[in-house]
């Protein structure tokens, strides 16, 4: 097959833009799974929930989905805090997180999905934005705005999370809890409180990422499942608990998916993330930037 330069350039641009969005979806998993050791497989469920909230408000009032998601993110924060409370008291405190905790989150994922199906049906939903149909052109290379806008906001969010973690007292407490919860307790900080707030932050990022998702593509309740592999692939590929790693992993995955759908057809693209995840787990479980 002849590879034209324009096709290649477009695939690279699309891959990078997609990668930025993947970083926004995965940054929450990097916090909850990578740092707090809470295996929140329900994360994609909250992303889809965020998409639907953005959809409802956009559909009724015509507000921009990303602005809506930033406005409702405190609600996601509270939801996350409440969820962590239940998780902590039911599983983590009793040392049962490995099996029952996983089953719990799986159940939560399933409930959000089925509840959305019951309320909205299985039709694909989309939002209308002013930039949705605009594409910037530089020669033969296109920059579709429906990818560029989420990409830019994603970058701000991911880098903001990284700065928050490294430059504030509370953020450093989160990093400390990731390293050694017992030592934190000896310093007079309650690790449960820190983990609760950090988990809440991770769910808040999921809600915002949901708005990006529905700007980029139409959303249906069941697609959340496909993102489970994606977010964990990014998190593990980059190296557990490293935000820069997550960013790198997201770009690698975005490029890999973009090339696959350009050269082999879009029906194979979802297999890339899961394949990459299996390969990483099998051959380099510590990830690219892993400690």
């Amino acid at each position: 097959m002849e590879i034209s330069t324009a096709l290649l350039l477009n695939a690279i641009i699309a891959g990078l833009l997609l990668g930025g969005f993947y970083a926004a979806m995965s940054v929450g998993i990097s916090i909850s799974f990578g740092m707090l050791d809470v295996v929140n497989i329900a994360h994609p469920g909250f992303i889809i929930l965020g998409s639907y909230i953005a959809y409802i408000v956009n559909d009724r009032f015509g507000f921009d989905p990303i602005v809506v998601s930033l406005t409702v993110s405190p609600l996601f924060f509270l939801l996350g805090a409440a969820l962590y409370r239940v998780y902590y008291y039911s599983f983590e405190r009793r040392g049962q997180e490995s099996l029952r905790g996983l089953a719990f989150f799986f159940g939560i994922l399933f409930i959000t999905e089925v509840a959305l199906v019951l309320t909205f049906g299985v039709d694909y939903r989309m939002v209308s934005t002013r930039y949705g149909d605009v594409t910037w052109r530089a020669g033969e290379v296109g920059f579709p705005m429906r990818l560029v806008v989420p990409f830019l906001v994603s970058m701000v969010m991911v880098i903001g999370v990284q700065l928050f973690l490294t430059h504030t007292f509370f953020g450093r407490a989160v990093l400390a809890v990731a390293q050694d919860p017992l030592a934190l307790r000896l310093m007079g900080v309650n690790p449960v409180r820190v983990k609760e707030l950090a988990f809440a932050l991770s769910i808040a990022t999921a809600g915002v990422a949901g708005a990006f998702l529905i700007v980029i593509q139409p959303v249906q309740p069941a697609i959340g499942r496909e993102f489970i592999g994606l977010v964990f692939a990014v998190c593990v590929l980059g190296g557990m608990g490293s935000i820069w790693g997550t960013l790198l992993g997201a770009f690698v995955l975005g490029l890999a998916e973009s090339f696959t759908s350009t050269y082999f057809g879009p029906s194979w693209a979802p297999a890339v993330s899961f394949g990459l995840l299996l390969a990483t787990l099998a051959f380099r479980p510590s990830g690219l930037l892993g400690r």
Binding site: I228, A271, F274
Partner: peptide, 28 residues
Amino acid sequence: YLTLRLRGVFFAIASLALSVVLYIFIVN
């Protein structure tokens, strides 16, 4: 063989990944 040497949660995630990969394989 590939994933049981790692922590249990990796096996869980890999098993989920396997079902999506196989699904796409069968669809194609």
